[in-house]
């Protein structure tokens, strides 16, 4: 059942901008999703570049914000992964900034939320899963698979523990992607539904849903930042597991 034009799901509809482009049988049409990805990347780059343009020793407000984000991700990586995680800092930082900006920009009225699509979050989560597994296998060789047998567990529990560990490991990309995707979808659907009430109730009672939407918007802003943080910190924790094997 496709969503109708004014259903709360209409905001997730993908519309091609310009004609469809095909390269070697691959559909690479520039859609509104692509547009907001490009906007997010441009916004991040502009934000960081303009914030640090003075390269001041005593930072201004903007530069402090840029350095604060750097420190925030840097500390997160150091606390959760340790010194070995330094090599992944650019990746983790890009990931955090991309999700943060995609989430927050998606909250703008009329904007498209890139991270509300399971393909996007799923691709990111799957990439992280594969990367983390490869890192673990490269660092530890076959010893990596002892990860699935928790140390200190009694031997007779192993037939139970090992499948549980394998499932909980394999399910990671799903939980990671669905968490972000569902948060974004639920938030936007809720905003759209309650915003729709404002039209339905008209002038006399319409302010009530609008007040609710205003409050929910604050919550959604919090969730947008929080989900970026959670996605990043879980990436860090997975990296830690791969590097240190518990």
């Amino acid at each position: 059942m496709a969503a109708e034009a004014h259903s709360p799901l209409a905001q997730f509809e993908i519309q091609p901008l310009g004609g469809p482009i095909h390269i070697g049988g691959l559909d690479v049409s520039f859609t509104n999703s692509s547009l907001w990805m490009v906007i997010a990347v441009a916004a991040i780059t502009a934000f960081m570049l303009l914030g640090t343009r003075k390269q001041a020793i005593v930072p201004g407000r903007w530069q402090s914000l840029c350095e604060g984000m750097y420190d925030f991700v840097s500390n997160m990586l150091r606390d959760n992964v340790g010194q070995e995680g330094r090599a992944y800092f650019p990746f983790v930082f890009s990931l955090f900034m991309f999700i943060l900006f995609a989430n927050v920009l998606g909250l703008l009225p009329g904007a498209f939320t890139v991270t509300s699509h399971i393909v996007v979050t799923g691709a990111m989560a799957l990439f992280i899963f594969v990367m983390v597994t490869i890192v673990g296998i490269v660092r530890h060789g076959l010893h990596f698979f002892t990860y699935f047998a928790p140390q200190g567990a009694p031997m007779w529990l192993m037939p139970l523990m090992i499948p549980i560990e394998i499932i909980s490991y394999a399910i990671r990309p799903m939980t990671l992607s669905i968490r972000l995707f569902a948060n974004m979808v639920a938030g936007h659907v809720m905003l759209a539904v309650i915003g729709g009430f404002a039209f339905a109730l008209g002038v006399w009672a319409g302010w009530l849903p609008i007040a609710a939407v205003t409050a929910l918007f604050g919550l959604e802003l919090l969730i947008a930042c929080l989900q970026a943080y959670v996605f990043t910190i879980l990436t860090c924790i997975y990296l830690h597991d791969a590097i240190h094997l518990h």
Binding site: T175, I178, R179, A182, N183, I223, L226, Q227, Y229, V230, I233
Partner: peptide
């Protein structure tokens, strides 16, 4: 807050 996000998810 992190646990909140996990539970909410």
């Amino acid at each position: 807050m992190m646990t909140f996000a996990l539970v909410e998810a």
